[in-house]
C-alpha cells in the first residue's frame, strides 16, 4: 500500500512538474504571439518603430526629429522608405540606398502629389481639379507646401487659413475664398457637435433615440467626405456635401424635438398618474374613516 501511494505521489509530482512546464511553455507561446502580433501590427497604424532603429535618422537627424512628431510616425503608418524608397533598417549605406530597394532620394516636385496620392487618393483627386492643379509650375504649391514633408500633422481647418496667407495677401480673393471655405466647414462641424451634445443629453432619458445614433454617424461621415473636397478650393463643390450634412442633421434634430415633446407628454402622464393615485387614496381614506 505504502509503495503504491509513494508511486502515486511520485507520479502526481511528475505530473505537477510536467504541468508546470506546460504552463511555462504556454506563457512563452502567449508572449511570442503577443510579440508577433505587435510586429505585424506596425504597418496597420499600431505602435511606431523606435526611431533609433531607423538607420536613415543617423545622418538625416533633422528630418528624423521632425518625422517623430508627425502623425505618420506616431500612428505607425509610414517610414522613410514609403516616400523615399530604400531600406531604412540597412546599416550599410550601399544596401540602404540600393536601386533594387526602389530608392529615389528626394522626390521630384512633379512626383510629390503622386506619392501622397498613393494613400490620400481623395485629396489628390480634388487637388488636381483646383486652382493649384499645375503643381509642376514653381508658382503653385504642392502637398508639402501646406502639410509639410516630414512634420505632417493631423490636418485641421486652421491649417487652411495659415497656409493661404503664406502666398496670398490676407484680404485678396483667394485668401478670402479659403476663409469662406473654412468658416463654412467650421459651421457644419459646430452644428454637428451641437446636435451630438443634445442627442447625448436626451438619450439618457429616451432610449428611442438610440436609433438616431446611426443617423448622426452618417452625418459625421458625410462631413468627413468634405475634407478631401477642400483641396479643390471650390466652395460650390463643398456646398453640395455640406447641404447633405445639413439635411441629415435636420432629420436628427427633428427626432430630438419629437423627443423633447414626448418627454413633456410623459411628465404630464406622470402628473396624471399621481392625480389618479391621490383621488383613489383619498376615497379609500374616506371609506376607512367612515368604517372607524
Amino acid at each position: 500500500m505504502i509503495g503504491r501511494s509513494a508511486c502515486v505521489s511520485a507520479c502526481a509530482g511528475a505530473n505537477r512538474s510536467r504541468g508546470r512546464w506546460v504552463g511555462w511553455l504556454a506563457l512563452l507561446a502567449l508572449l511570442a504571439l503577443m510579440a508577433a502580433t505587435g510586429l505585424t501590427a506596425q504597418g496597420d497604424g499600431a505602435s511606431p518603430v523606435d526611431i533609433d532603429e531607423v538607420m536613415c535618422a543617423l545622418c538625416h537627424f533633422e528630418q528624423g526629429d521632425e518625422f517623430v512628431t508627425s502623425i505618420h510616425y506616431q500612428k505607425g503608418l509610414l517610414l522613410c522608405d514609403d516616400c523615399h524608397g530604400g531600406d531604412p533598417f540597412a546599416v550599410q549605406l550601399e544596401t540602404a540606398k540600393a536601386p533594387e530597394t526602389g530608392f529615389i532620394g528626394k522626390p521630384r516636385r512633379e512626383d510629390i502629389a503622386a506619392i501622397c496620392g498613393r494613400c490620400h487618393t481623395g485629396p489628390a483627386r480634388f487637388f488636381a481639379q483646383g486652382p493649384h492643379r499645375d503643381w509642376e509650375n514653381d508658382d503653385n504649391p504642392t502637398c508639402i507646401t501646406c502639410h509639410h514633408n516630414h512634420r505632417v500633422f493631423d490636418a485641421t481647418l486652421a491649417l487652411m487659413e495659415e497656409s493661404c496667407v503664406r502666398c496670398h495677401v490676407s484680404d485678396s480673393e483667394p485668401a478670402s475664398g479659403g476663409v469662406a471655405i473654412r468658416s463654412r466647414l467650421e459651421g457644419s462641424a459646430a452644428h454637428l457637435a451641437r446636435v451630438a451634445m443634445d442627442l447625448d443629453r436626451l438619450r439618457v432619458i429616451d432610449p428611442k433615440l438610440d436609433r438616431v445614433v446611426p443617423m448622426l454617424k452618417a452625418a459625421r461621415s458625410t462631413l468627413r467626405e468634405a475634407d478631401p473636397i477642400t483641396h479643390a478650393l471650390n466652395l460650390e463643390l463643398i456646398e453640395e456635401t455640406l447641404e447633405a450634412v445639413g439635411s441629415e442633421l435636420a432629420v436628427v434634430e427633428e427626432r430630438l424635438v419629437e423627443s423633447v415633446q414626448d418627454r413633456q407628454r410623459r411628465r404630464w402622464a406622470v402628473l396624471g398618474v399621481w392625480l389618479f393615485v391621490a383621488v383613489n387614496v383619498f376615497f379609500l381614506w374616506a371609506k376607512r374613516r367612515q368604517l372607524d
Binding site: 398618474v273 399621481w274 389618479f276 393615485v277 383613489n280 387614496v281 379609500l284 381614506w285 371609506k287 376607512r288 368604517l291 372607524d292
Partner: peptide, 16 residues
C-alpha cells in the same frame, strides 16, 4: 375591509 383599504392605498402609491 379595514386592512384591505390600507393595503389598497399602498398598492395605488406603489403602482404610481
Amino acid at each position: 375591509p379595514h386592512h384591505v383599504l390600507k393595503d389598497s392605498a399602498a398598492i395605488y402609491v406603489a403602482i404610481g
